[in-house]
Design a protein around this nucleic acid. Sequence first.
DNA 1: TTGTAGGCGTTATCAT
DNA 2: ATGATAACGCCTACAA
Lengths: 343, 343
Amino acid sequence: MPKRGETKRAGIIEVAELAGVSRQTVTRAMNDMPGISAQTKRRVLEAAEQLRYRPSRFGRELVQQSARSLGLIVSDLANPYFSELASEFAKIAAANQWALVIIEKHPGPDTGWEQLRTLVGQVDAAIAYTDLAPHDIDRIFGSLPLVLLDAAERTLNALSPSRPRSAVNIDLAPGLAAVLDHLVGSGRSRIALVDIRYPTDESVRRETFARLVRDRGREPVVIEVEAGDDDLLVGRRAVQIAFDAPHPPDAIIAFNDMSAFGVLKELRVRDLAVPEACAVVGIDGLKIGVFVEPELTTLRLDFAAFAQLAFDEVVNMCATAPGAPQPPIRRHVSHELVVRQSG
Amino acid sequence: MPKRGETKRAGIIEVAELAGVSRQTVTRAMNDMPGISAQTKRRVLEAAEQLRYRPSRFGRELVQQSARSLGLIVSDLANPYFSELASEFAKIAAANQWALVIIEKHPGPDTGWEQLRTLVGQVDAAIAYTDLAPHDIDRIFGSLPLVLLDAAERTLNALSPSRPRSAVNIDLAPGLAAVLDHLVGSGRSRIALVDIRYPTDESVRRETFARLVRDRGREPVVIEVEAGDDDLLVGRRAVQIAFDAPHPPDAIIAFNDMSAFGVLKELRVRDLAVPEACAVVGIDGLKIGVFVEPELTTLRLDFAAFAQLAFDEVVNMCATAPGAPQPPIRRHVSHELVVRQSG
DNA sequence: TTGTAGGCGTTATCAT
DNA sequence: ATGATAACGCCTACAA
């Protein structure tokens, strides 16, 4: 029964009738299969064209048991961090004949909960970069294979153990150590970290940073900034806080590249030369880091490798028999220091 | 017959048997439908959980005739222009319960032709921002409803008229007129347009620009640059060309924001003050336009409106009966001038 | 080269 | 409240 107003689309049967052949012959023609004469094939394709026939995904996928649709949940695709990552997933997914379904889940308590469930229902596995609570994760994804990206330890530990859940996390310590060596080596003494306060936060960054700085005989400075919609403003705010205080830093490691751009901007507004008066280092290695002046020194994440790890794990989970145990896999990636002009 | 190594996923029948009920009762429990006792429902859900049961999309969609999967083809999702656009599509699609499938088709003759067909087969309609030849469009999309974004007139005219094809194009003239009024009004006399040469190009930009400039009693300057992988370099190259020539411009309208960033950068390298020595105006209105120094004056495109037009047209095409005529719809969007610091 | 039969997993309809 | 039956549209296997 066609829905209101819509006429039913032509099916394989109509095409078969119009072409005067069997359904099977239509299948052969449409899918470039052998065992059909050129003439019959042409007649069938003409009939299909005339009826605007297109094989139904549903019927086809049902019988072929395809299951190659990957959901990627990010908070905001307009954020270059997520779009660069999504771009890598697009390449990897395409190379493996998976469709990549992008789902935006903007931060906030219960924004579009039902919507999310609907979208997730269209997908055979998912990769999520989000700060959803463990409880919500279980409710939304059910027993769908899911790989979490850069999730808080606390979240991971609270996940239902019977569900297929893995994770790829970012290990900040090695990169941070490399930056600190670089900054200390170039004579910086008051090194600050911009740390955005998130509700789900764990302060693990702060502690790692403080330890690493002390290891190098310097005193750590942590600039705490409230999370905002706009990381650019977060960066500017960080500079305001740090430079309105008694002992301003001579090096700033931003929370990420986006906030580093804000740091650069506010320093320029205050006529503080970068890197002479203050070095600035970002985290992520976004492509637009070379757009600004001076070009941003940063800890680059290998997005392609990051995405590949997650994708491999998804495929792995999908291939595991449902009865077999699904030990949650934990993988890690870390950064590489890219020294440019800002530090 | 399960594929190599993989065990068949639990189906509704297994769940029904384990719970000791009929398939229909399982359906009722899984979908929160009425007509089931709380106790039975709980028993069924437990059985489902135990078997890691998840209703098959294929079976479900087959019987429900869903057809709510939208493909978005872009050349490079890591390019902020496309990701900001894609982000709007994600919001619109989600609000209408469509899944958004992102497909990257990087420029180049026959890169992943078969791959593209496979992906397109997973989708019920598509929106494409690409410079594919009309011939390839017909072969790849067949009779799939398709909306082209900012396609060349030549391409549109060559499309097979029997296929459901519409288009939303960008009308540059109104925005360009606004910029020129602004630049002339602030005393600029040698106004240049950076024009990237693409293979499929039509030089329509150049002509519109030249006409509008002459209308205002100034002499147009067109800086032609070969297309490259990197719009930033294109912008820098444009400045090199223009300022190594006898009469450099005092205002540059870049091909897009990304190349405008390159223009800004090269001007800074040459110690030319912006906007004093040379005004710079971008096109697109990307969010990162406020990240650079000085902030970029630009012609902003309303991405949300652009996407909404395309989406509405897709829905419209899908709702049209296959027998009914499908007159190709052509819609247009234009820019709004956003004056910031660079011009 | 072509046709026939069967089943993929689900939901809708109708009967109990 | 629950169950039996019939599609949904397609492809694989086999028969002609």
